[in-house]
Simulated scan of single mutants.
Amino acid sequence: MQKWIFATALTAVISVQAEPRLRYQHIAPRQADVLAKHSATEMERAIVQPELRFVGYFDENGQATAQADGIGYFRMQLGKTADGRIVIQDFHQSSRTKYTDPFIVPKKTHLNQFQVTTWAGFHSKYLPTGQLQSFLEYENGERKRSAYYAKGRLRLVENEVTGEFGRYAYYPNGKPMLIVVERNGKMHGKMFNTRGQVVYDSRRDKMPINANSPRARAIQRVMSAFQDLKQEMQAANLLEDNNK
Score class of each variant (00 low, 15 high):
M1L: 09
Q133P: 08
R21S: 03
E158Y: 05
P172H: 09
Q49D: 14
Q49F: 14
V180R: 04
Q25N: 15
H26T: 12
S39R: 07
G70A: 05
P102F: 00
V161L: 13
F103R: 11
Y168N: 06
S134M: 15
A64Q: 13
R217K: 15
D90N: 06
L111M: 12
Y170N: 05
H123M: 06
T109Q: 12
N112Q: 05
Q17C: 08
M191C: 07
V48M: 12
V48I: 15
K230V: 09
N212G: 15
N242E: 10
V16L: 10
R215E: 14
F122Y: 14
D69E: 10
R143H: 02
P176K: 02
V34N: 06
P102T: 06
L111T: 05
T118R: 12
R53Q: 10
G121D: 05
G84A: 13
D201L: 06
I88D: 00
I88C: 09
Y138M: 14
S202A: 14
G72S: 04
I14L: 12
G70R: 11
E60V: 13
A28E: 04
V13M: 10
Y126Q: 12
M223L: 04
T100N: 09
P128F: 02
T8A: 12
Q17A: 15
Y24L: 10
D69V: 08
R143F: 00
S95I: 10
G56Q: 08
W119A: 02
S39W: 01
S94D: 04
A218V: 08
S39K: 05
W4E: 09
I5V: 13
L127R: 07
L127V: 03
V222Q: 01
T65S: 14
Q93S: 13
L156Y: 01
R183E: 03
Q77F: 05
R155N: 02
G163T: 09
S95K: 11
R153D: 14
A64Y: 09
D205I: 04
A40Q: 06
K151E: 11
M43W: 07
D33T: 12
H26L: 09
H92N: 05
Q2C: 07
N184L: 02
H38C: 05
H26N: 14
A18W: 06
K206H: 09
G121H: 01
E139H: 02
E164F: 11
I209P: 07
Q17L: 15
Q89C: 09
G84R: 08
I104M: 07
Q49N: 10
L127A: 13
G56H: 08
N212Y: 14
V157K: 15
V105K: 04
G141D: 02
H123Y: 15
R183A: 13
K151Y: 05
G84E: 08
N237M: 01
N210C: 08
S124D: 03
T100I: 06
G166A: 10
N61L: 15
F54W: 00
A32Y: 01
Q49V: 15
N212R: 15
E42F: 10
F103K: 08
G56E: 00
R75W: 02
